[in-house]
Design a binder for these strands. Sequence first.
DNA 1: TACTTTTCTTAAAAATGTCTTAAATTTTTT
DNA 2: AAAAAATTTAAGACATTTTTAAGAAAAGTA
Lengths: 225, 225
Amino acid sequence: MRLLVVEDEIHLAEAVAHILKKNNYTVDVAYDGESGLDNALSGIYDVIVLDIMLPKIDGITILKRLRGEGVGVPVILLTAKSDVSDKVLGLDSGADDYLAKPFNTEELLARIRALGRRRGEIKDTNQLSFGDITLNTSSLKLSRGAEEISLTLKEAELLEFLMLRKNMVAPKEQIIEKLWGFESEAEANHVEVYVSFLRKKLNFVHSKTTISTVRGVGYTLTEQE
Amino acid sequence: MRLLVVEDEIHLAEAVAHILKKNNYTVDVAYDGESGLDNALSGIYDVIVLDIMLPKIDGITILKRLRGEGVGVPVILLTAKSDVSDKVLGLDSGADDYLAKPFNTEELLARIRALGRRRGEIKDTNQLSFGDITLNTSSLKLSRGAEEISLTLKEAELLEFLMLRKNMVAPKEQIIEKLWGFESEAEANHVEVYVSFLRKKLNFVHSKTTISTVRGVGYTLTEQE
DNA sequence: TACTTTTCTTAAAAATGTCTTAAATTTTTT
DNA sequence: AAAAAATTTAAGACATTTTTAAGAAAAGTA
């Protein structure tokens, strides 16, 4: 994961960068709003840690510009102000999280993990793997070893959703929301039908990976022994 | 993050709870001052949204009692009155924020985020531990060491409730309210049945943790030596 | 001890959630 | 416009969970 830290207090910036690198992130640092915005617009970052008070361009402005340009990268706002109105403003501008200085390391790490996770981990190859299966999110092909089968769009979306969540349970509600949007009449049965389809196809490629159901909650991808 | 909403207008309470859950909070609802206070005193909440006008015990009184007991959980007061004196009274009684009805969703969310953040807690996992056992509240799996067993939804809810209250006694009444809703026909026997089920499962994983009965009151989780 | 109350445990009934089809409908491709 | 593919609907079978109910056991009381 590649992170951008935009912070003008050099000491703090270096300290944060150091900690993040220690935690296996690739970290770039910008010391003022202008270069921060330039970097952020590149779209190569998975999470941006952004101070509000900055020289040249302030954090809120950067955030608005990013969102205005359609850059949806998760942003954690950093600030000394604990003013409520300020927070609301930040969040309204499209921040994903908010952290007041001084903050502790664990807290920052936890939030970065949380946001990074939300993004998932599709590499530029469009290949997504779990256990013995691979899904090409572009060609919609599911493969296990040499065996391969085509998925329909909905099937692929569902599988991708489950794969991104690895061993976590994906609530049925969330699946509906993701695949059909949440105003829809879509019923739980839709999900069940597609789970059934997918299981058949997983079976077809003789995968050891299965979709197990957690009754009353949802589904989770598990690797069988 | 775990929130408590204390609001007697059922419609509003449900709507708020729904929105909050959508935003990944764990939400409990109490429909009157008495059960609101009981719940609040448990100390398991990160933020409490508290209506002022309530049956049985009013919000201000609840707030004072909480602070009197040394419970410092952030409280957002909710009220139809936009009366300034009321606001002052609320803040003097130890409220952290104040929101006049009708309020918009974003505003409420922003304030909760702001207050929750102050606590510095962030929900990073759905694992809950007590003594030698761990409950995954998402996959509904109870484990002790390498041994593991699946729980049903109700079993998991009950265990979670007990685990959150650690060594405190969970009154049967409160358990009913939490698992079956506050106006249900649910009888004490329901709880007894589920306690029985759970004990069997705790036994199954050879846990030293047991549910002990406090006759006439309720149940509590205890670790046996 | 005898009696009352509360809790525990079970089995079976009822309710609910899930799976699997096939057919109907919609969308896309030819 | 016809054919093919994908999606949605619907219904019955099936599985699991929840509820009910009733007697046994345990705890409290006189």
